[in-house]
Design a protein around this nucleic acid. Sequence first.
DNA 1: GTTATAGATGTCATCGATAACATCTATGCT
DNA 2: AGCATAGATGTTATCGATGACATCTATAAC
Lengths: 330, 330
Amino acid sequence: MGNPSMADVARAAGVSAQTVSRVFRESPNVSPDTRRRVLAAVDELGYRFNNAARTLSSGRSRTIGLVLLQSGGYYSRSAVTAGVEAAAGEAGYAVSIATIAALDTGLMERSLSKLADQGVEGIVIAVPLIFATPRMEDITRDIPTVTLDGSRTAGASVLGIDQREAGRVATQHLLDLGHRQVWHVSGPDEWIEARQRRQGWQDCLTAAGIEPPPPLEGDWSPESGYRQGQIVAMIPDVTAIFAASDEMAFGVVRALRERGRAVPDDVSIVGVDDIALAAYCSPPLTTVRQDFYRFGAAAVGLLLEGAGAADSLVPASLSVRDSTAPPRGH
Amino acid sequence: MGNPSMADVARAAGVSAQTVSRVFRESPNVSPDTRRRVLAAVDELGYRFNNAARTLSSGRSRTIGLVLLQSGGYYSRSAVTAGVEAAAGEAGYAVSIATIAALDTGLMERSLSKLADQGVEGIVIAVPLIFATPRMEDITRDIPTVTLDGSRTAGASVLGIDQREAGRVATQHLLDLGHRQVWHVSGPDEWIEARQRRQGWQDCLTAAGIEPPPPLEGDWSPESGYRQGQIVAMIPDVTAIFAASDEMAFGVVRALRERGRAVPDDVSIVGVDDIALAAYCSPPLTTVRQDFYRFGAAAVGLLLEGAGAADSLVPASLSVRDSTAPPRGH
DNA sequence: GTTATAGATGTCATCGATAACATCTATGCT
DNA sequence: AGCATAGATGTTATCGATGACATCTATAAC
């Protein structure tokens, strides 16, 4: 009845089940003729490999887990995801996803548990994980884990894009144009990316002998950028703003314009992400781009090769467009 | 050595493995006291459930597969994905993803195979699947499958958002404003969504006694919208355009403006998706919104309940903003 | 001509949970 | 008291592939 098993294939091909197994695992020690016969039988019976059985007997599931935040709003995460999937697929691994609805420790623990139950051989955590609970560490102790953050989980490799670099590059660009002060609309404080970008901005200003103004915190969304933009617009003398994401940047632009501040004539703005629309909205946005796709792929590489936790630094490149200019009268 | 198994837990709790199993499956026939003892043992031993073993012995993997297109560019798909994940998670199902790099029959077959090997109990196909090959049908014959398309696979349920409605709503809005003709920048022809939206546009025009102009085909990206926009900008008398996605719409806007055509004063534009940026870019875009998240969730519901292939129609609502206006001198 | 040796193949126990079936209490009812 | 019945628990075989080990050729080396 049920689906044919290796034993059935073996019978049909006149060999042992073990040989069929060898054919599937591409063991070198199978004669071409036998292989052909086996494959023919597979085809004829419509045999389908049973991954659960392999996992059980071999202890290897050939699956990696990916922890995501449910709200898809945040751009770079989805690029990371694509990279993870691609790299995993290429290495013959399946990807099982666990999304968490919010940044909550309990939800995180549950997601990790679920993945562990599935026997994943590695976990990529693509949400900001500020602190790890003992239970999380219990799980990640047994499973190679990469967190795409600067955060530390005991035993978890950490692959960090140095987001400070992004903040530094953006801020320096504005300073180079002649601006004397740069304001910052940051991402939510729970996000390491947000904190790092803010740090980069701060460092850059400090290095230039400028006292950083208080940062304004958004939530990555255009709406939040708009709200913070309304505040900035009420402050005189603001000529340059670094927004931690393109979406927020456009929100800021809108708020400024509504208050009669032109971009880039009155105020220059730099974003981060280089989303597809950055070049096509108005004004085309100057923004910092980083290769998150490759980053995701790197995470998988780190996982599967078990290489040491090399904190890889993905370079940040600036796409200069029309949202930045020298300050008036410069 | 290895991880503790149910047998180990059973020994520690002084019960049989079967009872431990019952505790996990929340069988009603376990005394509260026994349950407590078992859970205590689980905790003490750090026992972790082995999903592969369950799958093998019960034949149920509690996993569903999701087929995606690798390029994350297309908005509504990611919303669908979120819906699928959420609904599956709620029902206690894991989600395994298989991404395909391009719309290619071979890649599709391989992805389906991979999911089938994993023993998924259902498959959600979230890429346009124009035609099904015999091999695909072989696979989907045994596994409940929902395609989020109008496409037909023998035996696969089809959950269709009626995208024609989106096209109709957008076009009608423009006609209502007084425009005498509406041009269309469509998505790629391989995408059912693209074809349906185009159909809706066509139908609407025809119903109004207007002969539809030739549609211009984009690829959902802002770039493609820009290219097609450049062409439209060279045609005199164009006063209204319906773009099949918001990103393309903004590309069109840019091209028009560069050629001195103001939006909405000279040309009105409607998009589809209502992406977060739609309200914050310039001009705020009039667009058609559909609840793709719910759509994804519905797909999972259909899969798990095995209900008949109810072609559910998600209503399309129009968000009127500033990219549309009556034609000049109206 | 023999002995090494690698290659091709087979046998059998095993991974861990579960389905199916068997027992063994309590409790209620006549 | 005697029996039916539901609830709680234990036993055993089983899912399908694989690891470890055994066997059996050919060919190479001496």
